[in-house]
Amino acid sequence: MAHTEMTVEDLIDLLSGCDGKQPVRLAMNPFFPMAHRLDQVVQATDETGQPVVYLAEGRDADTQLGHLPPEVAVALAWQAPVHAPPHRPRRTACGS
């Protein structure tokens, strides 16, 4: 199965439906989902000679913002939805 990469046009198209004043964050690592601030956009050439655009996180200590909100990890299909366990009656101190 061939993997197609997102292009700059694809990204612009997807971002055009968003509020332009909202911050952009990078969701990383599906097995330990974290949120990061974006800091730079760099045009370069990859190891095969193809031109590419890299989105980079910053170098500051507060660039990693913490865990990705669960609803974002679910929307990305990185985690399954978690539902609260069913309600059970509480036991009393005397064991009944």
Score class of each variant (00 low, 15 high):
residue 1 M to P: 13
residue 2 A to W: 06
residue 2 A to F: 08
residue 2 A to C: 06
residue 5 E to C: 10
residue 5 E to I: 08
residue 6 M to D: 09
residue 7 T to A: 11
residue 7 T to R: 03
residue 8 V to G: 11
residue 9 E to D: 15
residue 9 E to P: 00
residue 10 D to H: 10
residue 10 D to L: 06
residue 10 D to F: 03
residue 11 L to E: 02
residue 11 L to K: 00
residue 12 I to T: 11
residue 12 I to Y: 02
residue 13 D to Q: 13
residue 14 L to S: 10
residue 14 L to A: 13
residue 14 L to N: 09
residue 15 L to S: 09
residue 15 L to H: 01
residue 16 S to H: 09
residue 16 S to K: 08
residue 16 S to T: 13
residue 17 G to H: 03
residue 20 G to T: 10
residue 20 G to M: 07
residue 21 K to N: 15
residue 22 Q to V: 13
residue 24 V to R: 04
residue 24 V to H: 02
residue 25 R to G: 07
residue 25 R to W: 12
residue 26 L to S: 00
residue 26 L to T: 00
residue 28 M to N: 08
residue 29 N to K: 03
residue 29 N to M: 06
residue 30 P to I: 05
residue 30 P to L: 06
residue 31 F to I: 07
residue 31 F to M: 08
residue 31 F to H: 07
residue 32 F to H: 13
residue 32 F to D: 15
residue 33 P to C: 12
residue 34 M to F: 01
residue 37 R to H: 10
residue 37 R to F: 03
residue 38 L to D: 03
residue 38 L to T: 12
residue 40 Q to P: 03
residue 40 Q to Y: 12
residue 40 Q to I: 07
residue 41 V to P: 06
residue 43 Q to K: 04
residue 43 Q to M: 09
residue 44 A to Q: 10
residue 46 D to I: 11
residue 47 E to K: 02
residue 49 G to T: 05
residue 49 G to W: 01
residue 50 Q to I: 05
residue 50 Q to C: 05
residue 50 Q to G: 04
residue 50 Q to S: 10
residue 50 Q to E: 14
residue 51 P to H: 08
residue 51 P to L: 09
residue 52 V to D: 02
residue 53 V to S: 07
residue 53 V to C: 13
residue 53 V to I: 14
residue 55 L to F: 14
residue 55 L to A: 12
residue 56 A to M: 13
residue 56 A to H: 05
residue 57 E to A: 11
residue 58 G to V: 01
residue 59 R to C: 14
residue 60 D to A: 15
residue 61 A to Q: 06
residue 62 D to K: 01
residue 62 D to M: 01
residue 64 Q to W: 00
residue 66 G to L: 01
residue 67 H to E: 15
residue 67 H to Y: 11
residue 67 H to Q: 14
residue 68 L to Q: 04
residue 69 P to M: 07
residue 71 E to C: 04
residue 71 E to N: 08
residue 72 V to N: 01
residue 72 V to A: 06
residue 74 V to A: 04
residue 74 V to S: 02
residue 75 A to L: 03
residue 75 A to C: 02
residue 75 A to Y: 00
residue 76 L to W: 01
residue 76 L to Y: 01
residue 76 L to H: 02
residue 76 L to T: 06
residue 77 A to Y: 03
residue 78 W to Q: 08
residue 78 W to R: 03
residue 80 A to R: 04
residue 80 A to E: 11
residue 81 P to H: 11
residue 81 P to D: 14
residue 82 V to W: 02
residue 84 A to T: 10
residue 85 P to N: 07
residue 85 P to M: 09
residue 85 P to K: 04
residue 86 P to W: 00
residue 86 P to E: 12
residue 87 H to M: 09
residue 88 R to A: 15
residue 90 R to L: 15
residue 91 R to T: 14
residue 92 T to C: 05
residue 94 C to D: 14
residue 94 C to Q: 10
residue 95 G to E: 13
residue 96 S to E: 13
residue 96 S to C: 14
